[in-house]
């Protein structure tokens, strides 16, 4: 069974494509690259809303709590980047702890600033729609950056990695959303804010699985990762 002689085809393929590469940065460092995105979501969403309907900006104490939420979202994204590296997958316990911390953090952040409004059912549903659409408008472009960073690695569980990315971006968006949301009721927070995060989690999982499937179809991977010379070497043979 022991055969440690390398096949010629493999040797030639590697030889034709060999060039120095710089290892990826650590997951935490790559998450920090997304700090500007977190700031844009944290500040951009309330400012946009303020500009659109001339609403009052939230008090300082709320901004501080949203800042904590943004930091939490960067931690989730760092976990996603770690999950994307072969052999560094998160254990079930780590995932459980992470999920617990995120859910608790979200609940605390939203519950401490609870300002329930008694409104008609039509208004209530409109606010849910507005919160979800606002989150999607800002988050979907923001989801591209972590998705790209994940696609540079090789996740063994792409759906989970994508879901973590979606969760990270969702929490990031919630940090900005809660600063101008008029309804702090539990039902609104769970349905609108939690719903938007859940949609992002599902979208992240689906898109990561799709990207991984495309990469699995090979040769496309050569283009994505910049390995043009590899396929060219094969075409020459």
């Amino acid at each position: 069974m022991s055969d440690t002689r390398m096949p010629d085809a493999l040797f030639d393929a590697v030889k034709h494509d060999l060039r120095p590469v710089r290892p990826l940065a650590s997951p935490a460092r790559r998450a920090l690259v997304l700090f500007p995105v977190a700031i844009i979501l944290l500040v951009g969403m309330p400012l946009f809303w303020h500009w659109q309907v001339n609403a009052l900006l939230a008090p300082r104490s709320l901004w501080a709590l949203s800042g904590v939420e943004s930091v939490l979202s960067l931690a989730v994204l760092a976990a996603a980047f770690r999950e994307a590296i072969p052999g560094r997958e998160l254990s079930t316990r780590a995932l459980t702890v992470l999920t617990f911390v995120v859910v608790t953090g979200l609940l605390i952040a939203n519950a401490t600033t609870r300002t329930e409004s008694a409104v008609a059912i039509e208004t209530w549903t409109r606010w849910i729609r507005e919160c979800i659409s606002m989150t999607m408008t800002f988050s979907l472009p923001a989801l591209i950056a972590p998705a790209w960073l994940v696609s540079r690695a090789l996740p063994s569980r792409p759906a989970l990695t994508g879901a973590l990315c979606g969760l990270g971006v969702g929490v990031m968006a919630d940090a900005g959303l809660r600063l101008f949301c008029w309804d702090g009721g539990y039902s609104h927070v769970i349905l609108a804010h939690g719903g938007a995060i859940a949609i992002l989690v599902v979208m992240g999982a689906l898109s990561a699985a799709a990207v991984e499937r495309i990469k699995g179809a090979h040769l496309i991977c050569n283009r994505v990762c910049g390995f043009k010379s590899f396929s060219q070497a094969w075409r020459r043979k």
Binding site: D17, P23, S26, I85, P86, L154, F230
Partner: peptide, 13 residues
């Protein structure tokens, strides 16, 4: 081993 070659940058020494 081909995938190792393609993904060699994902190894973090």
């Amino acid at each position: 081993f081909l995938e190792i070659h393609r993904s060699r940058r994902t190894y973090l020494p």
